[in-house]
């Protein structure tokens, strides 16, 4: 009963139109100016820089829409103002506007390839990303049937871990571990142990809580070989938090908006 669905993203189409509009406006306005001048309509050539100004604003908007911001693209409207506020004559105007339009196009290509895609429903926190959705489906039978109160506690643990409130996270889900499904009980124990260690900035202990071999089919990340102790220890927490998240997502529908707010943190746990 995953509430999230792979929705069509109409925003993406709009984004593509906007991307197309940037070179269209910035080159197009200058070309329009050249055509008008060649027909004897000699309007001040500075006005045709408006295409470059609009192109800059569109580029800045596209940069703003991305989770990873490009400060160069964001600041192009300021440069457009600086470059085009001063009146220019015909030939220098053409050169300046064409160079500026070419620069905007290059910045657009750079934005697309170096700064990723625009916000999606996932990155905007409206929809669950596919690795988390798939993991919830995988563990549904193993962690379902929690009381609303316990499921809420699981959601609280996730929220507290994502905000670095480790002292408060410790013990939040431990109190009623007898009534928890086996894998969730182990996950709660691991999360509690790590929360206390993180709160005290303590190093990895020699003996620590782990999942059982029978849990492995339900774990999000395969456990590294036990010789690599540090990674093995870290993977226990990553898996524990994802098990707790799954239980919270299934059992506490009212907490889903908060869990979506922790999505970026949870997705990093898969890495």
């Amino acid at each position: 009963m995953s509430s999230s669905t792979v929705s069509a993203t109409p925003g993406m189409n709009n984004q593509q139109y906007l991307e197309l509009a940037i070179p269209l406006f910035s080159f197009g306005a200058t070309f329009a100016g050249v055509i008008l001048w060649s027909r004897g309509i000699e309007i001040n050539f500075q006005f045709f820089a408006l295409g470059c100004v609009i192109g800059s604003c569109l580029l800045a908007y596209l940069a703003w829409c991305r989770p990873k911001k490009d400060i160069v693209a964001l600041s192009t409207p300021i440069y457009a103002f600086i470059f085009f506020v001063v009146p220019t004559d015909y030939m220098s105007g053409i050169v300046l506007q064409m160079l500026y339009a070419a620069s905007l196009t290059l910045l657009l290509v750079r934005l697309k390839y170096r700064f990723g895609e625009a916000h999606t429903a996932v990155s905007a926190g409206k929809e669950l990303a596919s690795p988390l959705r798939d993991y919830v489906d995988l563990t549904r039978d193993a962690v379902s049937g929690l009381s609303p109160e316990t499921a809420h506690q699981a959601a609280v643990v996730i929220s507290q871990f994502s905000t670095g409130e480790y002292a408060r996270a410790a013990g939040t889900l431990g109190g009623s571990s007898g009534s928890l499904p086996a894998i969730l009980s182990r996950a709660a124990g691991i999360a509690n142990e790590h929360a206390l260690l993180l709160e005290g900035s303590a190093p990895r202990p020699a003996n620590y809580k782990t999942f059982l071999p029978e849990d492995e089919a339900l774990l999000a990340k395969p456990l590294p070989p036990s010789e690599d102790e540090e990674r093995h220890f870290d993977a226990q927490l990553d898996n524990a938090l994802l098990v707790i998240f799954s239980a919270a997502w299934i059992g506490a529908e009212t907490d889903r908006p908060h869990l979506l707010g922790c999505q970026a943190f949870l997705l990093k746990l898969f890495q």
Binding site: F161, S162, G164, Y166, E199, S201, F265, K268, L269
Partner: peptide, 20 residues
Amino acid sequence: QAKTVRVKLINENMIGKIVR
């Protein structure tokens, strides 16, 4: 005040937190 954390645990919900 700082808590020693793995880089992976740092996320946008931790804005303002002091870390090591």
